[in-house]
Design a protein around this nucleic acid. Sequence first.
DNA 1: ATGAAAGCGCTAACAG
DNA 2: CTGTTAGCGCTTTCAT
Lengths: 336, 336
Amino acid sequence: MTITIRDVAEAAGVSTATVSRALRGLPNVDADTRARVKQVALSMDYVISPSASRLASGRTGSIGVVTPQVAGWYFSTVLSGIEGALQQGDMDLLLMSVGDEASSAPREPVAPRLNRRVDGVITIALVPEDVQLQSVLSLGLPTSLIGVSIAGVAGVHIDDVAAARTATQHLINLGHRRIAVITGAPPGTLYTAPHARYHGFIEAMGQAGLAVDPTLQARGYFTIAGGERAMAELLTQSDPPTAVFAMSDEMAFGAMRALRSHGLQPGREISIAGIDGHDMAELLDLTTVAQPVRDLGRIAAESLLDQLRSGDRSVLPSVQVPTEIILRGSTAPPAH
Amino acid sequence: MTITIRDVAEAAGVSTATVSRALRGLPNVDADTRARVKQVALSMDYVISPSASRLASGRTGSIGVVTPQVAGWYFSTVLSGIEGALQQGDMDLLLMSVGDEASSAPREPVAPRLNRRVDGVITIALVPEDVQLQSVLSLGLPTSLIGVSIAGVAGVHIDDVAAARTATQHLINLGHRRIAVITGAPPGTLYTAPHARYHGFIEAMGQAGLAVDPTLQARGYFTIAGGERAMAELLTQSDPPTAVFAMSDEMAFGAMRALRSHGLQPGREISIAGIDGHDMAELLDLTTVAQPVRDLGRIAAESLLDQLRSGDRSVLPSVQVPTEIILRGSTAPPAH
DNA sequence: ATGAAAGCGCTAACAG
DNA sequence: CTGTTAGCGCTTTCAT
């Protein structure tokens, strides 16, 4: 019924081994033979059986992408970068969500689901302390991390400290003194970005000799709704801030909405800056420190493909990609 | 080195066949035997080899998801729905982009990449006329279509005509008479949604006895930037519309921005309604006809799993899911 | 309820 | 440069 390598071999008058070599572009095949085999295979509509190939070779030809969520701007943009690179590298992409930490469902361990079905793994925004990441790493597969950096593991990330420092510094340079921060998760949680970004904020404030007012901090949990609540909270202060640094654009969006519903205009009464370079930031006229999100995915995938092809198991450095502040209408000098 | 089913069989004192049956939950295995085998397998950290299993059984245990783009709100939200359902169904998800039609890169044929590596296929927003879809269907695999409906093929979609009619009718009910439409692709292209939504618009206008002014139509290409340009264009009219129906929320977002930059406020000088129920619609206070996007993915995946499990090759109907208009501040009665 | 044995379709030495 | 020959690790009759 389905046509196999043997059928092709017979039709071409060669052995299955030669067909295999010819079709995979291996050396030591006569040019004419190769051409003939290819021609025959094509005319017979021969399609290699991946399962058989995998079983015999030990390679799966696919790589697993492990992510805490698949919807959402950041994750889907990263994923599109990965997909593009893997497709070029002729690798299958196996998508695995480890479940939103926001979801109540317990996160099923992902390592068993990965175990013998991929040649390598890319993780998105999984932090070093995450048990899921730990178990993935313990698989011993070539791995590439996106968004965080672990010594000895390949990956790609931005300088979160610098990004936050840049955003904060921009507000300071505009003349703001009472600057609030909308953070992500509560302190003590496992996430890298909020910690690093908080550091950057503190650094910039400290260098400018500005006090970090604990009442000018609110948690937005990296969501739009959270950012809105955080901003609303900040506005209840007797002496509200003149500027706000939100650790992510989506929180900034929420914050901007809170401002508007309080009759305040972003960039007039209160300035606001975010981090991400979200698609909607331009639309909403939000000043932001943009990271090359799609590139993050592409670079991680290419790095993994390199590892796979070169068989290089040496200690690879995590590459750091630059961010860039984009100035828009949401930030301006203090009102008066 | 790696432990195989034979190791488990020996350790448990049974044959490999029994191990296979026991571990897969097949009938005709003594309860005690099954328990012992499971226990032994667990203690040995045995992990089945998917390649071997696939080769022997002919089933791949994975589903291909074919999409024109992986980033973007609609696609990533659908994808998350698919992912959740497939994970529950214990199926691997193979992600394949057929390339944005916006991208200049020619779309590589996807059928060969799918051919012997999946048990079924889900396509997102691929229209009947698409050659990629045609070749996927010709694979003869169980298939589930999202966003369009083809007779005899399972799938899930909304009633695009009704959605557009609802949005338009709402504007009419508010008292608007000069209603513009921001369409998607140019007429004559292959996409279903713009055509159907245009029909719905026409229908509603016709029923209300309103003229469809050809100068009150502009193309937004389903992007934010496109929507912005389209709105700007509409505003150059000597007699501009008092309301606008945008065929997608993202185009509506762009249109709202254009309004603002012309000093007009959505919902005051000009009303605007979209379709989608985009996350940001609430933030931007946009009236929209929401579709249950994540459910689209979930339903399609579940339907495919059903097909696979039941072996049912009968002609399945495409299920139509309801939409719901969400009224917000962007629509209101005409200004004066 | 369990075992024996024959593949599934390909790759990878090893010869030649 | 090409063919022969073992498997890769599992599933699945067919017996028992």
